[in-house]
Each structure stands twice: as structure tokens, then as C-alpha cells.
Amino acid sequence: MVKTIRDHAKGGALTETTFLVLLAVYQPNHGYGIMQFIDNETNGRVVLGAGTLYGALNTLVKKKWIRLVDSERDNKKKTYVITAIGREKAEEELKRMKAVLKLAASIVKGDGK
């Protein structure tokens, strides 16, 4: 329903919702499955609402980061899978997060300058 991808203009940071949805569709998955995946893999820390997920899925399809699985187009329960562009975005995000983590660890743990 709403645009949930708020890429940082320079840093390219994805929202957690966007990143988790991308991870959930590395294997073909449908709405409820995506919600379950995120709930399980984050041990209940992130529980996506159905409305929020709907907005995220539509935006990601529009940006061609994920796509509907062809054989499922007419099915009421739509199945999505990540695209090459989506994989690229997820890899970039992983790289960015690693860099942020490294910086945070060096400062928070006291071994920063």
C-alpha cells in the first residue's frame, strides 16, 4: 500500500523489512510463508503485519527486485522469488551491514580510536 523502501540516498541502506523480505524469497515463497520465515528466522523479534508486507511486496515487484513465479500468476496465493537485481541489492546490503558492524564493534567494544 505504501512505499516501504527508503533507500538512503548515499549509503544505500535498506529498511529491515525490505532486506528480510528479500531474504525470504531466495526460495519461492508466498505472503504467509514470508511472514512465517521472518518470524522464525528472527526468533519473533520481527513480526511483519500483513498490510506492511503487502506494501513491501508490491514495491519490490515494481522495482523488479522480486517477481511473481510464472506458474503461480493466476493462483490466488501469489508466490514470489528474488530476481538478479534483488540478489545484487541484498549482497550490497550485506556488505554495507558488515562495514557498519565492524565500525560499531570497534567503537562500542572500546578498541576504537
Partner: peptide
């Protein structure tokens, strides 16, 4: 019963 869980999404709704 939470349909909108993302702060930006909640704001839009």
C-alpha cells in the same frame, strides 16, 4: 491484530 508494523507504513495508513 497488527496489520501495519513498520513505523513509516503505520504513518501512511
Amino acid at each position: 491484530f497488527e496489520l501495519h508494523t513498520d513505523a513509516a507504513d503505520q504513518y501512511e495508513s
